[in-house]
């Protein structure tokens, strides 16, 4: 029988709480952005053609 050759850390090293913390932080940032009116400003810009962005101007 071939001897197993571990080449990396075991699954137990998975930082299982970190993704949840990022998820919570991300949701909080999204709500903050909405509260500050960011989505309305995005809409305002994104509904006009950005000529510079597409290489015109």
């Amino acid at each position: 029988m071939a001897t197993p050759t571990p080449t990396g850390p075991a699954t137990a090293a998975h930082p299982s709480r970190l993704p949840w913390a990022f998820l919570a932080a991300g949701l909080a940032l999204m709500l903050g952005g909405i509260w500050l009116g960011e989505t309305a400003r995005i809409l305002d810009k994104a509904t006009q053609v950005c000529l510079q962005c597409i290489g015109i101007g």
């Binding site: 993704p19 949840w20 990022f22 998820l23 932080a25 991300g26 949701l27 909080a28 940032l29 999204m30 709500l31 903050g32 952005g33 909405i34 500050l36 009116g37 960011e38 989505t39 995005i42």
Partner: peptide, 19 residues
């Protein structure tokens, strides 16, 4: 400074990355 930072985008992409 607060209203000029793209918080919503940062948050959205953080949620996407965390998932």
């Amino acid at each position: 400074v607060l209203s000029g930072t793209p918080w919503f985008i940062l948050g959205f992409m953080t949620v996407v990355g965390a998932l």
